[in-house]
């Protein structure tokens, strides 16, 4: 099955486009039951990511942000929708269902950085083995070329001199150094797109800033497009030019980061923002107006996903389907009947 659609580059400037992406997981309800339920982990997500841009995907746990990221690099195959990716010739290609050689080729251009620097490296392999793995499986260069390239990449992520790291093992490195190695592994093939899944959430504050600055600097220098997944709005503020806020598998608000943080439109974004503690003992925050917690989106009703917790929902929200993500002025997109 070949589903690559050759859309000419002029049609879109985007590096990656998610078009109505969806992922549903069946909930097992016994062997003999036909009418199975589904968890709608990601439910009709669309956005464009420009070359060199950092788009933040923020939300609470279980909102589908990680699943979305994994679909964009094809670690998870979407149930529905398309992932249009700009290939070397500048055409957009749907990678949602690629297999075999074309998929392997796509892997050169899209990489992922994982959350846990302790678990994202095989403890039995040297740093050289780990960083050179993509080159090895893609059969890029001979041994000495790989060595050169790995050394260069290690210096690029601030592990200098590379010779003192190459032949060490993950457990001999600190958390911050390990995350740098993970970034080096993602960059060694010079991808144009990287999904970063909470790359700093497990690091200490004093280490975290360094990693954030490194990623920003590399994005500028190498023109990499990032999808930056985080639960931390404050981190997103420093990493992303635009953010998309997700709730139960849907994007509920999207726009320029600073705009969204200053003037949130969607009631969920407002709640999320007012819940973030501020490192200033004299600051006061309003008490939250929303109650309860996120539930798993199993066979959600055809109404706004936020209805149960929304402080401003009314009968219209109850009787109508989930609102579309539409322009609310000044380039801000929000999915709310009331906003």
């Amino acid at each position: 099955m070949n589903v690559s659609v050759g859309i000419p580059a002029s049609a879109s400037l985007a590096l990656v486009s998610a078009v109505n992406l969806a992922k549903r997981y069946p909930v097992s309800a016994g062997w003999f039951r036909r009418d199975r339920s589904f968890i709608h982990a990601v439910d009709g997500v669309s956005f464009d990511l420009m070359p060199g841009e950092t788009l933040g995907l923020v939300g609470e746990s279980g909102c589908g942000k990680t699943t979305t990221g994994r679909m964009l690099v094809r670690l998870t195959e979407p149930t529905d929708g398309q992932v249009l990716f700009k290939n070397q010739s500048g055409d957009l290609e749907d990678i949602a269902h690629l297999k075999g050689a074309p998929l392997k080729d796509f892997r050169r251009r899209a990489q992922m950085v994982f959350q846990d620097p302790y678990e994202s490296m095989n403890p039995r392999r040297t740093i050289f083995d780990t960083v050179a793995e993509p080159l090895h499986v893609q059969k890029i260069g001979d041994h000495s070329e790989r060595f050169e390239r790995v050394s260069e990449t290690l210096s690029m992520v601030g592990l200098t001199p590379p010779a003192s790291f190459l032949f060490r093992f993950p457990h001999e490195l600190s958390g911050g150094q390990r995350q740098r190695v993970a970034i080096a592994r993602a960059l060694v093939m010079e991808p144009s797109f990287v999904v970063a899944d909470e790359p700093t959430s497990m690091l200490d504050i004093s280490i975290r800033t360094g990693i954030m600055q490194l990623m920003n600097e590399l994005a500028d220098r190498l023109g990499i497009g990032y999808l930056y997944i985080t639960h931390d709005l404050a981190v997103a503020r420093y990493m992303c030019s635009r953010i998309a806020v997700m709730y139960l598998g849907k994007i509920v608000e999207m726009g320029d980061t600073e705009d969204v943080l200053q003037y949130p439109v969607h009631p969920y974004t407002k709640a999320l923002l007012s819940a973030v503690p501020v490192p200033d003992p004299e600051a006061t925050r309003d008490a939250l107006s929303i109650k309860g917690s996120v539930s798993a989106p199993v066979d959600p009703l055809p109404r706004c996903r936020f209805y149960d917790r929304c402080p401003i929902a009314d009968d219209y929200c109850r009787d109508n389907d989930h609102p579309p993500l539409e322009d609310k002025g000044a380039g801000r997109l929000a999915a709310c009947h009331k906003a």
Partner: peptide
């Protein structure tokens, strides 16, 4: 995650 990393390397 290193299994995912290996898959995403191809």
């Amino acid at each position: 995650p290193y299994i995912d990393a290996a898959r995403s390397a191809g």
